[in-house]
Design a binder for these strands. Sequence first.
DNA 1: CGGTATCCGGGCGGATACTG
DNA 2: CAGTATCCGCCCGGATACCG
Lengths: 133, 133
Amino acid sequence: MTRIRHQSLDCSPGCAVEATLQLIDGKWKGVILYHLLQGTLRFNAIRKRLPNITQRMLTTQLRELERDGFVLRTVYPEVPPKVEYSLTARGRTLEPVILALKAWGDEHTEFRHGPEARADQNGILSPAAKGTE
Amino acid sequence: MTRIRHQSLDCSPGCAVEATLQLIDGKWKGVILYHLLQGTLRFNAIRKRLPNITQRMLTTQLRELERDGFVLRTVYPEVPPKVEYSLTARGRTLEPVILALKAWGDEHTEFRHGPEARADQNGILSPAAKGTE
DNA sequence: CGGTATCCGGGCGGATACTG
DNA sequence: CAGTATCCGCCCGGATACCG
């Protein structure tokens, strides 16, 4: 696994764009990073924020983020186990990128798929823990 | 088709991040957008900048970008045919996002596959410096 | 020149069951 | 609680051939 996808990075100067995209690609990585920008989270805490992600996928994506040096995984040898995920310094350098993505989405995306998806028992964390940009 | 991937956008506030990512995802879209930021390009002109993209893929990605309202396709009824691609106003709103991706890549990516790929026949934008390890 | 049509392998990611 | 293991469908995207 490890999200190889395909690594033909022999493109032009735009190469850097591709390279970055491949790192935060993966269907869930962007959102995970976004949530971790707001602070350390436990495994199931992240799950609550991504209602549709499967356990397997969350693990996979987190492992890849960890492998890429964006996320720090801290295991507390307790019973029951407790694992916390936080951003590394390198992970935090992605903040402008993530925020740019979010800003654009907020500005130009309309969510049209009925009102049912708006039901969200959140309030877990302050959603505006950071500036709008 | 059209890059459906999967549209379970019922995520939390980070949803906008996902939404944006899905639009510029697709292995080549980011780079294509990047190059089009620099001006109108003909089909084969784009191909030259993406040495590894296949004709089919370039067409597909351009069609999706067009369908998403990012790219304008102009056909000149000549012989031989001439088709130009340019960004729409909406497409240009992605500029900060693309530039954020490129900036991060320039700063944090090392291209490890020999010095041959450093040959850029055009310093269109700021080529910036490659990062340290 | 700028496509389209078709075939096809592989990875991506979902579902489910089991573990420490 | 926080995983791992396994099975498997489906989409992504490459290769190739042909068309206006």
